[in-house]
């Protein structure tokens, strides 16, 4: 488990020269023939392999969207499952091309780690899950509790901040993998389990009796989750960033995977530019002009991806909330394609 570090250390110490010198991730990806995407080790609805070994989820679909933008083929992507503490080293050393793994955007991650966030594909916040039998209704009643948490996350820091700010004691029980955290909580090692609210909904489904547990109402932090790339390759950053924006714009304009072919004949200039029937917006990015149309056709717009993986119709049953489009009172806002 920890041995995974060794190759990275060697890579970080010696082999990074390769990535630093070229820093043309798009050319590398095209040469390789596939996108290497850093994914979660298993977070239902966001990124986990299904029973056939096929990767599914909200973040996984975003990786597929990037692959479609480049290759017009959602299967030309390989996933590297990464724990919270492995993820940044894997990206820094060039083991993955992009990290889409419910990772929180913070200042120190942007400034000290040689990384840059390409936007926010999911606005989240940290919450607590407890057993209903505990008989509490607020996180402020958790003083003295044992809390299960995953190592190397902003969650671990927010947890300490929250208890300190409210003058409460707690006992952290820290694991490396989210599965281990859930297992420990399920076995009763901890009174509470904390992670991003989206994660709580996903992990609750893995518990022996999901109905015995409840999520407390407090959201104790801002967790803007988004894709991350290495610094120093602005072209690649642009591709990742605009893959997200084109999916937002598609939802806003009502373009879906079902109607994208008809929409190509639309008279709306916004839609024409987005789908590449007018102007040459793809070529300067190193892509084809119809890259946007391909992404929508093969993966879908933002709303489709959300509903398919985590939306109200799925076992997770998450409502759009902050992740609704700006036109519907949410925060998701795509800059214009022009």
């Amino acid at each position: 488990m920890t041995n995974k570090f060794l190759p990275w250390l060697v890579a970080a110490a010696l082999g990074v020269a390769a990535t630093a010198a070229q820093a043309d991730t798009l050319a590398d990806v095209k040469a390789k023939g596939f996108l290497q995407c850093g994914a979660n080790t298993g977070l239902l609805g966001f990124g986990s392999p299904d029973d056939k070994g096929e990767w599914k989820g909200f973040d996984v679909d975003f990786c597929r969207a990037i692959a479609v933008a480049i290759f017009n083929d959602p299967t030309k992507v390989k996933f590297t499952p990464l724990t919270a503490k492995e993820r940044f080293t894997a990206l820094q050393s060039g083991e993955v091309d992009v990290l889409v793994r419910n990772t929180t955007w913070t200042l120190s991650r942007d400034s000290q780690m040689g990384l840059i966030f390409a936007g926010v594909n999911y606005y989240d916040g940290q919450g607590f899950m407890v057993r209903k039998s505990l008989g509490i209704s607020s996180a402020l009643e958790l003083s003295g509790a044992s809390v299960c948490v995953q190592t190397g996350t902003t969650t671990e820091l927010n947890l300490a901040d929250y208890f300190r700010a409210n003058g409460m004691q707690f006992n952290p029980v820290v694991f490396e993998k989210s599965d281990e955290v859930v297992q420990a909580y399920d076995a009763g090692r901890c009174d509470a389990f904390t992670t991003d609210a989206s994660g709580l909904y996903a992990e609750r489904l893995k518990l022996t009796n999901p109905a015995d547990h409840m999520v407390l109402p407090e959201i104790i932090s801002k967790e803007p989750l988004g894709p991350v790339v290495r610094q120093g390759d602005d072209k690649w950053l642009t591709i990742v960033k605009w893959t997200h924006y084109v999916m937002l714009n598609a939802e806003e304009a009502g373009v879906t995977s079902a109607n994208v072919e008809q929409m190509k004949t639309s008279d709306n200039p916004d839609i024409k530019r987005m789908l590449g029937t007018e102007g040459t917006f793809g070529e300067p990015m190193g892509l084809t002009n119809d890259w946007g149309a391909n992404v929508i056709a093969k993966v879908g717009n933002y709303g489709e991806v959300f509903d398919r993986n985590v939306g109200p119709e799925t076992p997770l049953g998450i409502s759009r909330g902050l992740n609704a489009l700006w036109t519907k009172g949410g925060l998701q806002y795509g800059p214009p394609v022009r």
Partner: peptide, 25 residues
């Protein structure tokens, strides 16, 4: 220890600290 959540050197330092600072080397 890292596998069972005991806060030893690898878990605390090469785990949490490494990740919070990003200074792997």
């Amino acid at each position: 220890a890292v596998a069972i959540g005991y806060p030893d050197l690898v878990s605390v330092f090469a785990g949490t600290v490494l990740n919070q600072t990003g200074q792997a080397v």
